[in-house]
């Protein structure tokens, strides 16, 4: 139990471990997921998606920090690179998504996703 707690980084004597990062990422991920599932507002969903991406970035960085960097140097900067890539991706995604949302708003007068169900039979 202690080890577990310790791995969460609550014990200052022990350096913060991988589990702590993963825990944070998992919390973020679940929050994002819930946001996606629960929110009706498209902006909320978009925020949820951003959270999920961030959770992924954290995971990349953590795994890179705790084992991804190999001694032979082959894994150098893989994690940060992915992180940067994902941030870029998130930015792009946000831009595109906002543009779609804007278009939706013009067409339907709302961005409540449940009101937009033209594909439904």
């Amino acid at each position: 139990m202690n080890e577990l707690v310790n791995s969460w980084g609550l014990n200052p004597a022990i350096p913060v471990g991988l589990n702590a990062y993963l825990l944070v990422a998992a919390i973020l991920f679940v929050l994002g997921l819930i946001a996606c599932m629960a929110r009706r507002n498209a902006i909320g969903i978009l925020i949820g998606v951003e959270l999920i991406i961030n959770a992924a970035i954290i995971n990349f960085m953590a795994f890179w920090r705790f084992g991804g960097s190999q001694t032979d140097g082959s894994g150098a900067l893989v994690g940060p690179l992915f992180g940067v890539f994902l941030i870029l991706l998130a930015a792009c995604e946000a831009a595109v998504a906002l543009a779609i949302l804007l278009s939706l708003y013009f067409n339907f007068g709302t961005i409540e996703v449940d009101s937009i169900h033209q594909m439904e039979r």
């Binding site: 996606c36 009706r40 969903i45 996703v113 449940d114 937009i116 169900h117 439904e120």
Partner: peptide, 17 residues
């Protein structure tokens, strides 16, 4: 099967999860 296609993304997500 098209009845499953509700068009509600959140539903899909929920089912996916």
């Amino acid at each position: 099967l098209s009845y499953a296609q509700t068009g509600r993304v959140r539903q899909y997500l929920l089912l996916m999860v």
